[in-house]
Design a binder for these strands. Sequence first.
DNA 1: CTGAAAGCGCTAACAA
DNA 2: TTGTTAGCGCTTTCAG
Lengths: 352, 352
Amino acid sequence: MATMHDVARLARVSVSTVSYVLTGARPISQATRDKVLAAMAELDYQPNAMARGLASRRSRIVGLLMPMDERGLGATETAFVTGAAAAASAAGYHLVLSPVGAGDVDDLRRLASQRMLDGAVLMEVQVEDGRVAALQEAGVPLVLIGRTGDTTGLSYVDIDFEQTVREAVDHLVGLGHRRIVYVNHSAATIAAGYGPAVRTRDAFVAAMADHGLAPIMIPAEDSAAGGRAALTAALAQAPDLTAVLAMNENAIFGILGELATRGHAVPRDVSVVSMVTSPQVAELAHPALTAMTSPGSALGRIAVEALLRHLEGAGDTHQQLLPCALEVRGSTGPAAGARDRTDPAGSGPPVT
Amino acid sequence: MATMHDVARLARVSVSTVSYVLTGARPISQATRDKVLAAMAELDYQPNAMARGLASRRSRIVGLLMPMDERGLGATETAFVTGAAAAASAAGYHLVLSPVGAGDVDDLRRLASQRMLDGAVLMEVQVEDGRVAALQEAGVPLVLIGRTGDTTGLSYVDIDFEQTVREAVDHLVGLGHRRIVYVNHSAATIAAGYGPAVRTRDAFVAAMADHGLAPIMIPAEDSAAGGRAALTAALAQAPDLTAVLAMNENAIFGILGELATRGHAVPRDVSVVSMVTSPQVAELAHPALTAMTSPGSALGRIAVEALLRHLEGAGDTHQQLLPCALEVRGSTGPAAGARDRTDPAGSGPPVT
DNA sequence: CTGAAAGCGCTAACAA
DNA sequence: TTGTTAGCGCTTTCAG
């Protein structure tokens, strides 16, 4: 393994010159630069990351802290990762994914204090997230994908849930739906302060109110069974519902399954919109789901770019919201009631 | 940030003593150790990872090289990750996930040459995988989750596909099925030499032959639409099929959807077994899928443990296969034909 | 525009 | 059982 000394010797320059060629921290004449570059190429030189890190006090590693529960990463989260990785790589940084959740704050504290990370991007941020304090105490710059409750002085990129819910509701109301049920995450998740669950809930209430409609909301466990149970509960509470807005990607297939079991055709009898969903997942269903498509890789990219700007010394916080885009597929259509009014020959109530 | 010197001064010992307390590389008297530990605690000392790495030439980082396509990680892959992370953490190593696929060999070569990784675990190994050579050339010990075509001198942990397919086929044959269709990954994936696709294909042919049955095999794109198309093709080729064995987790919902569309009830008319599937995914379907459950986190754990053993100097290769476990749920039942023979009043052909 | 040299914080001989 | 010290390979003053 060639070292910088080897390169310097071969190029007949000093080690510092080699270093400056590498870092660009001071001007080097073209002739010298060429000599050095040639020597590097000949020796297949690669700078030692540890030595660089020790001397410069910057590891050129940024962490992507990503809780991993047993359910795995959905396509949405994966898009964050690929976007972040691309941005880091483009800037000459390594992006390491670390499966540290809100629970492993001690692990994180250790990682941060060991000066292994120049900065970190946090995913799956909770309203109260111990990781934020741990990193701040360790002096590690950070950017959130998501938001804590108090974002003062914090940089974040997040989905604009208010806007996203509003668009989804507008879409359904525009189709004539008035009895719209919102299926959220589980009650426990909401109680734990999971941002997306809380924000979409509030946004749904507001959006429905704007249309003079009463919000109907049902929590659902993150599973197909949870979706089934939620739909059953929804029908008990609002037998005349014509549309379901689902925030819960894990429950959505249960909802669809239960609708099918009960003989409610989608979208003829019930329209379904899935929130914050990737096209891949939306296409899994039949008919494909009308969905609010998450900004995906853009979120990851923007987060890393903001973080790198902080590392370069920019002190201002970066706070940005991106809405999901409505993509109409086959799971939404005119409300049954609306059709009844405009089409006297409209189909009757669903068969069971 | 306290350094080792600070600790040494406070504890009134030399830096090397502090270092040895940390590494355990030579015996330290209890009294001295206690003094040092107390000083560390008081200063909230954390060793600088870069300095350790430079001096010891070991980063204490192992990489988990994990291609990330846009589809995301399934629960199965996630289990590998959590198992690996737990094992690394238990041994005092950091496990960094790096989204380097078989394509980014240059990225990997750089990463490896920079001496940032003590070793690596590769996921999603291809039959010909450039990453293996890149790491070997860089002198980075590695363990595969999966297998290359030639595994001479290579350590790996993999699923025992032969055994897994055999058990699945035996289960179906035991239920009286004789017309069994195997839905694999796409033709392109098979052609590219994706191990699981190739091995399960061969194993299916062998297992069917052992029962004196003809293998029927259909490739499927990794999507719901691919699954639908595959089932359509399967029915064209074998209209009398009574069971589907699906290797493709992305296609499975398309297969189920198409069965439903055609009025084939599961498992009354057609039994379905999903291969290498996590319980979470299996439960998404209704009825829940009978599946071959992957060993999950055990694979990740064993891989990391083998890697760490290599890092400690063990020269022997570790090659191990783990079978998936059959978990019978609701998607398999007696073959329609078998039922017809034993139950004259059995249901007729499926309605469309 | 280039070179010399002092560290960065730690490990691991070598000495005692 | 402990201390002394020479690096690890690089960055970055300080000089020229």
